[in-house]
Amino acid sequence: MVRFALTVVRHGETRYNKEKILQGQGVDEPLSATGFRQADAAGIYLSNVKFTHVFSSDLLRAKQTACTIIGKNKFCKDIVIQYDPRLRERKYGIAEGRPLSDLKAMAKAAGEQCPSFTPSGGETLDEVRARAKDFFEFLCLLLVEEEHQKGQAVLDMTGNGLETFEGKPVFPLRNHCSGLELNSDTDRAAKVLNANILVVSHGAYMRNWFGYFVLDLKCTLPSTLKKSQLSSVSPNTGVSHFIINLENGDLIKPEINCICLNQDDHLADVNTGNV
């Protein structure tokens, strides 16, 4: 059995986010001042979590967010962030650098709905999902191989910073995520984790990735989660958390339990403006 925690965070706000301009892959805009405050807040929120692996999109807004989060962490300041192009935002082709309203107008002219419409030179939703699937399968294979190399050695919850720190629960989602009440079997199982992974990516990409989890891999969801939340784009620095089990190293049918989706409690004191 390989069991790992996966925390996925959307990058902080950029000027283009605030102005509702599409960035995709062709516009590499840095974080705004608000975006850095959001990343700081996310970093503080996750500061007691000892991540074993950190991955980020190689686009600037994601890289800056990942670096800021790790800079706030009590355990992982020296961890190497791995930048992976498979985590990039959906490519919007000719619509990149243009207002979202332009994309909606293009979709309407083509007789299609905006989320599923593909502008010229852009990626289809299936292509984005294929990238997400490829990255996730890479993660699973990486952890199975690492565990094989370690000869069944595992990290207990205290050892990886997920259970207690100075007598207090340190994984913030345990306190803030809706639907986090775990049953006794799940709670016992979660006391041993082989890895704890942080991924920083992008809104449209994450929505497609999570759709793959739910539709293809039958991920279980919190009972309080609304369907509208599942189809919504994460707010900037929204946090999603999953526990993933690979029974006997099974990469084909992983068991995925969503603890929370697009959580933004950490932004309560951040002046986000129009994100």
Rank of each mutant, 00 (worst) to 15 (best):
K20C: 06
F4P: 06
M206I: 14
G97N: 09
L6I: 03
C67Q: 14
G93P: 02
R10C: 09
V154D: 01
G111E: 02
L193M: 11
V233G: 01
K226Q: 15
L225M: 15
R61Y: 09
M206L: 10
A110V: 00
R207G: 01
V80N: 10
E89Y: 09
L173T: 03
R10D: 10
A110W: 00
L22G: 02
S232Q: 14
D216W: 05
N194M: 01
L251P: 10
N175Y: 02
F55V: 12
W209G: 01
M106L: 08
D187R: 12
R61D: 14
D185C: 06
A62G: 05
N196A: 07
R15V: 11
P235T: 11
F117N: 00
A95K: 01
P254V: 08
E19G: 04
G151Y: 09
D269Y: 03
G111R: 00
G179T: 05
L251N: 08
G111V: 02
G211M: 07
V214D: 05
F242T: 09
H11Q: 13
I70A: 04
N160L: 12
S201H: 01
M106R: 00
S201R: 01
S47K: 14
N257P: 00
K74R: 15
T237I: 08
G26T: 07
S120G: 02
F165S: 04
P30C: 04
L125A: 12
R37L: 15
P85R: 07
W209L: 15
G179W: 01
I21K: 05
L267M: 03
T186D: 13
G24S: 12
A41P: 06
F138N: 12
S47G: 07
F75T: 08
K18N: 13
D78A: 11
R129P: 03
D156N: 14
L193E: 06
P169A: 05
V270R: 06
I81F: 06
D264S: 15
T65P: 05
N208G: 09
E137R: 14
P119T: 03
T158Y: 07
T7H: 08
F210H: 11
T124A: 09
K226V: 12
A189F: 02
V214R: 08
E163D: 11
S178P: 07
L87I: 08
S231R: 13
K20S: 11
F171A: 09
K226P: 14
H202I: 10
P115Y: 02
D265Y: 05
G161W: 03
S47M: 12
A204P: 03
D126L: 11
S116G: 02
N274C: 08
I197M: 04
L22Q: 01
Q149W: 03
Q25L: 02
G43P: 12
H241P: 00
R207T: 13
L100M: 08
N17K: 04
E89P: 11
C258Y: 07
A42L: 05
T34H: 04
C76Q: 03
E89L: 01
R90T: 07
F55W: 10
W209T: 09
D216T: 15
Q82M: 03
V144W: 05
C140I: 13
L6H: 00
F210C: 05
G159M: 08
V199S: 05
S240V: 06
N194L: 00
R3D: 09
R86H: 04
